[in-house]
Design a protein around this nucleic acid. Structure first.
Lengths: 104, 104
DNA sequence: GTGATACGTAGGAATAATCCTACGCATTAT
DNA sequence: ATAATGCGTAGGATTATTCCTACGTATCAC
């Protein structure tokens, strides 16, 4: 079972954040991902494993391809850890509530 | 100049997250922090250095003590990176409002 | 079938992270 | 002045991370 720590560790790496961003845009295969990086395919596979072990992506087998999908539920604790710090860049929480009311 | 990557790296460590949490609660000295951890003071100093280099804390000298303060502006890019993923756990905007009410 | 493709993993090198003890430098207390 | 306190840093051991090439296995194309 992945811990909150596993998730923080997973997203600490910029390549892995970019992998998540690419997969959020569209689920895709390892090769399709790998060509976007200045890194060999096996290294991309390893990063995907870290993300998978953290519960941030899932793989779906299609023939010999494995299509990876984002499953970012596990990012929630990160967002929650962050929330008390939001006062540092928001004038007030009220502003946010107002914003949400204005943009339903 | 600290990069976004420095910030992600800094908060990837659970001790450093706890340091931030303690400092958010109240600015305090290295010794005051160190007694709360199962770690020697020099190690706490080193973690504080990582946080300082990432721009997440500042020190203020008072005699021979150094009082550390949170300065979490630099966490903003983390929150922003996270925001496209919030759809994964936010069933409705109402959930977020509830969350904010619970974390005033 | 044979050969090519997609992928993960093993093994290893290079580097980074994390902790420690020992020590040095300021500042405060006596 | 002398001793004690608060803190950072040096040096080093241990472990983790990150990358590579080489290789094995499954699937597809022919």
């Amino acid at each position: 079972m992945p811990t909150v720590d596993d998730v923080f560790t997973a997203v600490a790496n910029r390549h892995r954040r970019r992998l998540l961003d690419l997969l959020l845009d569209e689920p895709q295969s390892v090769n399709a991902l790998a060509v976007r990086f200045d890194m060999r395919r096996p290294s991309v596979s390893e990063h995907l494993k870290v993300l998978k072990d953290a519960g941030l992506v899932r793989e779906e087998r299609h023939g010999r391809e494995r299509i990876y999908h984002v499953d970012a539920q596990r990012l929630r604790p990160v967002a929650e850890w962050l929330s008390p710090y939001e006062v540092f860049w928001r004038d007030s929480l009220r502003d946010l509530r107002d914003h949400l009311d204005r943009n339903p």
